[in-house]
Amino acid sequence: MRTFPGFLIVALAAAGCQREERQLRLDPPVVAALEQIALMPNRISGTPPQIYFALDRPYEENAYNLSQGKRLYSWFGCKACHADGQGGATTEQIWQLAGYVQTIGAYSAKTAAPSRNDEKQTRPAENRAPAAKLFDEGPTPVHTDQGPTP
């Protein structure tokens, strides 16, 4: 009977071993399934795909994924606009960004256009529209091209 508390402590400590399992390489079918987000008709909001819940919400519950997310937040300069979650860009900057972002998709032609790229263009200029006809999107990426998990 006296060994019971000791056993309990060891069992509790061992339970921690399962806390964090890193999956470093996603299987291509999982990537494809994770892209099946159910968007709202406005194509902005929506709900995660079924697989996300089937995998126990790995991007919210796994410490490794969270710290990779933190790394990307700093790497990709998210702080420039979002600071530490409290907003970094000024009202004027947000309006300017929103105005420019609309021209990237270029669904309708405009008389006003941003300045041209200094480097070689990798896409039609922003004021040439409708873009869908002008973009040469090239071959469609297919995840299964990357083969099965070795």
Binding site: V31, G138, P139, P141, H143, D145
Partner: peptide, 10 residues
């Protein structure tokens, strides 16, 4: 990251 690319792109 593993960037999904078509064979020709790769």
């Amino acid at each position: 990251p593993m960037v999904p690319l078509a064979a020709e792109e790769l």
